[in-house]
Nucleic acid binder design. Structure first.
Length: 112
DNA sequence: GCTTTGACACTAA
DNA sequence: CTTAGTGCCAAAG
């Protein structure tokens, strides 16, 4: 059945597509799903039951490039992003726009 | 099925 | 720059 996945399942499909060293935002993910449920995306990330290596919720930041929240603390999120090569100054991703994975870049075919 | 809860977004001041 | 207010919507209770 097409489009039968829950909103959260769709989020996870897109989440997996964010490559190491890049980020996306709650806004872009919601937009890719044709929704304005930015906050709901955050809720999904917060309850993410999967390993962070397979479902890298630390790569999802706010639409203005600031790091945003994280279930294990903002510092941990910042640290992990730095380990992937990103620069973060004053809680904000440096050169954010060039690393941002936009809504149009996601592959929706996996949703079926 | 209504109410509350957010790891958010946007605008105005 | 910061704060306050409004809007947003899926999930859980």
């Amino acid at each position: 059945m097409n489009g039968s996945e829950s909103f959260s399942e769709r989020c996870y499909v897109l989440l997996r597509q964010i490559p190491e060293g890049r980020v996306s935002s709650y806004r872009e993910i919601a937009h890719a799903l044709g929704s304005r449920a930015y906050r709901a995306v955050g809720n999904v990330m917060n309850h993410n039951p999967y390993p962070t290596d397979l479902y890298p919720c630390h790569r999802v930041v706010k639409s203005d490039g600031t790091v945003g929240g994280y279930a294990w603390g903002t510092e941990v999120k910042t640290k992990r992003l730095r380990e992937e090569g990103l620069s973060i100054v004053e809680g904000k991703v440096v050169n954010f726009e060039s690393f941002l994975m936009k809504a149009s870049e996601f592959d929706l075919s996996g949703l079926n």
